[in-house]
Structures are given as C-alpha cells and as structure tokens.
C-alpha cells in the first residue's frame, strides 16, 4: 500500500499526541476527518457515489446486469466486487502493482456482505433458477491517504442507496418460453433497502491507544489495526486484523467495542444525508470532480 516515510522524531510527536487524545490535525482519537459524499456522479452506471475522506478519494460505480442465479441459491441475486487501484493514486500501483491490494480489498468486501441481512438478495431475483440481477460493484481508488476501507464502505453504501434497477415484466408465450421486458420509463425503477448495509471502521493501534480514521503518517506509527464492519444496529458482520503486528486480547476487545460505538454513530447521519440529497431531486447542484 501507499506508504510514507516518517522519522523517529515525528513518530514520537504523533505517539505523544495520541496518548493525550490530540492528533496532529487536531482531531480526537475517535473522530473522522472531513467527509464529502456525492451520489449519482457517473451517468452510465445504475448507481454511483464519490467519497472523499481527507485526501482519500474513492469512486464507486454499480452496474446491474441480468445473470443466472447460483445453483445453491436459486431465488437470490448476487453481488460482485472489484477494486481497482489505479496508478493515479500512487505510482506503486502501476501495472500489476495494485493487484494484490485490490484482491485483498475485494475479498474483504465479499466477507463483509457474506450474511443474510446486509442486503435483501431475494429482491434481486427475477425468476427463480433462471434469471436474477447481478450487481457489479466496481470501486476505483483515486487518491490514497489512509483509511481506504472506511471510505470504500461508505461509498458503497451511498452507491447502493443511489442504485436504480429498472423494473422487469415477465411474459410467457404460448410455447411456455419466457420473455423479459424492461420498463421504458427511466423513473419506473426498483430501489434497494440499504438500512442494514454495514460500514467498515478501521481502528489503528498506536502506542497504548487506538485511533479511528488514521492518516498515512499515523498508520506508519501503528503496528496493527483491526477493521470491523458494523450495521446500524451494532451487529458485527466482519472483523479482521490487518498489518504486521499482534494485539493483546484485551485491546482487541476494547477496539471492537470502540468500533461498534463509532460505527453505530456513523450510520444515522449518513442515511440522513443521503435522503436529503435524494429529496433535492433534479434541482441539485452537482459538484463533480472539480469541487
């Protein structure tokens, strides 16, 4: 991943600051950086969102396509995740350099959504065993400044909220063959219920404390971090230790508790914000990439 060089003196400065609950940019230990969210930024997708968190920028596009349901679950659609680390973010990602990080991120996303309640997959089914909607969630990292996981999960939640899947009519002809007809009206669409979609909170262990939303400098000072994905009710859908160090069991428990608290607090304002943006409708002033 993109890394920065931090000298010993800088490390001491950051460590002592965090010990006293004051970080280099003035935040407390459980505060996020300034976050900007904009949905419906790419017109060719069925749903899209762009999230900037400090200097980290993530763009998510969701395309819905008709596919065949998995044989084990004939009455459900499914999601496919792909994370692209473009060379825009850091030159290290050029060529196949970003591939490893991309697989790691997308595997984590599969795990985060690997439960029955995150998203109602049954609503994606068109006709059991034959056709279903497949949502291709493509994540593009535009800038890396730490805390990719959190930015990515917020962007995915916003993009899923924004996703409009066209309604389909199934008509069967005389010979028993089925025909799928897409609705012509662009406003006649199905929306997804994103209430239960989890958000990832990454906690970095720095010294004896842990911080939320670490910058690259802070990340360089930490030995290990714990990421947990939390739903709005506080259920944990995925937990993972990332990074080279090991953690004390007690601090793992402390970090899960803090992660749950922070994650629960993140959902309500996010949903309110998304609904508010939605209510503006066509009048909304689009910011795009230059804002």
């Amino acid at each position: 991943m993109a890394t920065v060089q931090v000298s010993e003196a800088e490390k001491v400065y950051i460590l002592h600051g965090i010990r006293d609950d004051l970080r280099v940019d003035g935040r407390g230990c459980e505060d996020y950086r300034h976050m900007e969210i904009e949905t419906d930024v790419v017109s060719n997708t069925d749903g899209s969102a762009k999230v900037t968190l400090g200097h980290t920028a993530v763009l998510v596009g969701i395309k819905a396509e008709i596919g065949k349901p998995r044989p084990m679950v004939p009455n459900e659609g499914y999601l496919e995740f792909f994370v692209d680390c473009s060379a825009n973010a850091t030159p290290e990602f050029e060529g196949r350099g970003g591939e490893e990080l991309g697989t790691e991120l997308s595997n984590t996303l599969y795990r985060v959504f690997n439960n029955k309640h995150s998203l109602d997959l049954r609503s994606l089914c068109i006709s059991p065993g034959e056709h279903c909607w497949v949502l291709y969630v493509d994540v593009l990292l535009l800038q890396c400044d730490g805390n990719l996981y959190d930015a990515m999960s917020v962007a995915i939640k916003a993009a899923l909220f924004n996703t409009k899947i066209p309604r389909v009519n199934i008509s069967s002809d005389d010979e028993g063959g089925k025909e799928i007809e897409l609705s012509d009206d662009p406003f006649d669409c199905m929306r997804l219920d994103v209430e239960n979609v989890p958000c990832i909170v990454t906690l970095c262990k720095v010294g004896h404390r842990h911080v939320v939303d670490a910058t690259l400098q802070e990340k360089a000072c930490s030995v290990a971090s714990l990421l947990i994905s939390v739903t709005h009710k506080g259920a944990v859908t995925c937990a993972r230790k990332v990074g080279g160090g090991s953690l004390d069991p007690e601090s793992v428990f402390e970090m899960t508790e803090a992660g749950k608290r922070v994650g629960k607090a993140l959902h309500a304002p996010l949903m309110a914000l998304l609904r508010q943006e939605e209510s503006l409708g066509m009048k909304r002033h689009k910011v795009g990439f230059l804002g």
Binding site: R111, T231, C238, A239, R240, K241, S246, L247, D248, P249
Partner: peptide, 11 residues
C-alpha cells in the same frame, strides 16, 4: 498472550 490473526464473517 497476543493475538496475531483475527478474522470473522457472518453476522
């Protein structure tokens, strides 16, 4: 007494 790896999925 250290946890070096932790991974969970499902709700």
């Amino acid at each position: 007494n250290q946890i070096s790896g932790l991974q969970s999925d499902g709700e």
